[in-house]
Each structure stands twice: as structure tokens, then as C-alpha cells.
């Protein structure tokens, strides 16, 4: 993979990355580069929302009713600073989108992280120990996968929200959503890691390491895990897009983020009510942002899948 130019100095990590197949494949894929740039912009603007947006959409005192339902700036009646218009409460659409994107991305990342953690852990255990642990875990996975994902997520999130004490309801909803999404996707990681672990377990390096007395936990994490990561990496990227989609769908159906902390899905849900009154911008712009975000993530994931697939080299 890497070529050393000077024998005395090892290339740094960055240099090695720039010399790798992956970087080369990335550079030669126009759609991947485009998707990465778009995704970078979306994430950057979302996390700089407090600096960029003309209004704090959570601050009820900043809302003025006479600014309600203003069209976008290029249409007649549009006003500065409301570039993309306002909703019925006089909330700036652009600010809402930036803050909403931030919530969507955070929930997406958190749910991928949780399901990775759970899935990898359980998959390693199931593959390494086998036996009843394996049986029980895989059965649970089978049952979960035999119910459609939207249903699982709706049920978990709507039911769990009933349990939240009122004081935690605002903070807890996001956590519940993360769990509802992770509930489902850990199975996929667990299956991949398990299958790979069962292969690696029988190899000589594992045997050797076991003979020197490496504890099982270290053996699993330090030796076996790195050999299972490539497919996991691809799945995680694609699942990040899926997680954002599911969160948006749940919020759209009314079992996700509440209107006072809107994610993109909530914004679309709220805007959908004004579809027939002519204020199309309330629903259109959040929808476009959601599509851009998910399409960019999926295109990157698609490229990554091909780039990391040894059969396609």
C-alpha cells in the first residue's frame, strides 16, 4: 500500500493515507467527491447554526407574528433577513433548517454509535464463544428482523415516550429516538461481526495469541475486531443515511422530535399542514435539505462499498 521514499523516515499517517488506494479511488470518483463536499457543507453549516442563522428558532421572544408566512426573499413580499421565508409563527425557515439539520445529524450519529457498540460487542461474543450465547443473540436478531423496521421504531419510540417523566421529556425524546433506531440496526453489525469472528477464531494467529495467554477480551478487541471492520465501515455509512431517514419519518408521523425542538422531519410535518394554503416554502425547503443530506450520505456509502470490495478492484 505505501511506498517509503526515504528509508530513514516512516511516512506520517496523512502521507500514508494520501498514498493509499482508497484516496486514489476517491479522487477518481466525481460523484464521491461531490457528495463529500456537499455533505461537508451541510454538516459545517448545521454545526455553525448559532453563528449563521439570522434568528434563534427556539427563542419564542424573538418571534414576531407580523413576520408570519413571509414568502422567500426572491418573491414578492419577501423580507430581509428571512431568506427562505417564515412559517405561521414568524419563525425563519432557514434558521429552522440549520438547527433542525443539526438535530437530525446528531441523532443519526448517536444511533449509529450505539448500534455499532452493541452490535460489535454482541457479535464478537456470539462468534467467539458460540453455544447458547450465540443461539439466544441470533434468535433475538431474527425476531427483530422479522418485524418491519418502521414498525419497531414507531412502537419503541411511542411507547418509551409514555414512560418518560415530564421533567425529562424534552431531553429524553432524542435519547429515545436514538435507542429506537439502534434497536434495529445492531442486528446487522452483530451478524457481520459474528460471521467474520467465526472465521478468524480458527486461524493460527488467534490460536497463537491464545496460547501465550492473552485474555479473551483483549484477544477479541485487539486481534479479531480489526479484521472484521471493513464491511462494518460500509454498513455504518449506509446506516447513517438510513438512521436520518427513520428519524425524519418518525418525526413526520408525530412520534419523533416535538415541535419545540424540531428536527427536519418535524419541520416537514408542521409545514405539511400549510401545503394547501399556498405557503409551500414552509414544507419544501426542509424537504430539500433532508433529501440533499441523505442522498450525499448514500452516494458516499455506495462509493465506499465499491472501493472497499476486493472483488471489484
Amino acid at each position: 500500500m505505501t511506498e517509503q521514499t526515504t528509508p530513514s523516515k516512516m511516512p506520517s499517517r496523512l502521507e500514508r493515507f494520501r498514498d493509499s488506494d482508497l484516496w486514489w479511488s476517491f479522487k477518481s470518483h466525481k460523484s464521491a467527491v461531490g457528495a463529500a463536499i456537499v455533505l461537508g457543507l451541510v454538516i459545517l453549516t448545521a454545526f455553525m447554526a448559532p453563528l449563521l442563522s439570522p434568528q434563534n428558532p427556539y427563542d419564542l421572544a424573538a418571534l414576531e407574528l407580523w413576520n408570519a408566512e413571509l414568502p422567500p426573499i426572491w418573491m414578492e413580499g419577501g423580507q430581509m433577513p428571512f431568506l427562505l421565508g417564515t412559517d405561521v409563527q414568524g419563525r425563519d425557515i432557514l434558521s429552522g433548517i440549520l438547527y433542525g439539520t443539526r438535530i437530525s445529524i446528531i441523532i443519526g450519529i448517536a444511533s449509529v454509535a450505539v448500534s455499532l457498540f452493541v452490535g460489535i460487542g454482541l457479535g464478537l461474543m456470539a462468534g467467539y464463544y458460540g453455544g447458547w450465547i450465540d443461539n439466544v443473540l441470533m434468535r433475538i436478531g431474527d425476531v427483530l428482523l422479522s418485524i418491519p423496521i418502521v414498525l419497531v421504531a414507531i412502537l419503541v419510540s411511542s411507547v418509551a415516550q409514555q414512560f418518560l417523566p415530564p421533567a425529562f421529556r424534552e431531553a429524553g425524546v432524542a435519547a429515545v429516538l436514538v435507542l429506537a433506531i439502534a434497536m434495529y440496526s445492531w442486528v446487522q453489525y452483530a451478524r457481520v461481526v459474528r460471521a467474520q469472528t467465526m472465521v478468524e477464531r480458527r486461524k493460527e494467529y488467534v490460536m497463537a495469541s491464545r496460547l501465550v495467554g492473552t485474555p479473551a477480551r483483549r484477544l477479541m478487541i485487539n486481534h479479531i475486531l480489526p479484521n472484521t471492520l471493513t464491511p462494518i465501515f460500509v454498513a455504518a455509512t449506509l446506516n447513517f443515511g438510513l438512521a436520518i431517514l427513520i428519524e425524519a419519518t418518525l418525526s413526520f408521523l408525530g412520534v419523533g422530535m416535538p415541535p419545540n425542538q424540531p428536527s427536519l422531519g418535524t419541520l416537514i410535518r408542521v409545514g405539511n399542514q400549510y401545503l394547501f394554503s399556498g405557503s409551500w416554502w414552509i414544507v419544501l425547503f426542509p424537504s430539500v435539505q433532508l433529501c440533499i443530506l441523505v442522498v450525499a450520505v448514500n452516494m458516499l456509502g455506495d462509493w465506499l462499498r465499491d472501493a472497499l470490495n476486493p472483488k471489484l478492484r
Partner: peptide, 13 residues
């Protein structure tokens, strides 16, 4: 790719 990425409710709207 876009068809797979678009959320179905956004398509509907």
C-alpha cells in the same frame, strides 16, 4: 441512488 435515498413521505408531499 436518489430514488433509494428519498424519504417516501417527502416524495408523497
Amino acid at each position: 441512488i436518489i430514488g433509494i435515498s428519498l424519504p417516501s413521505f417527502v416524495v408523497g408531499i
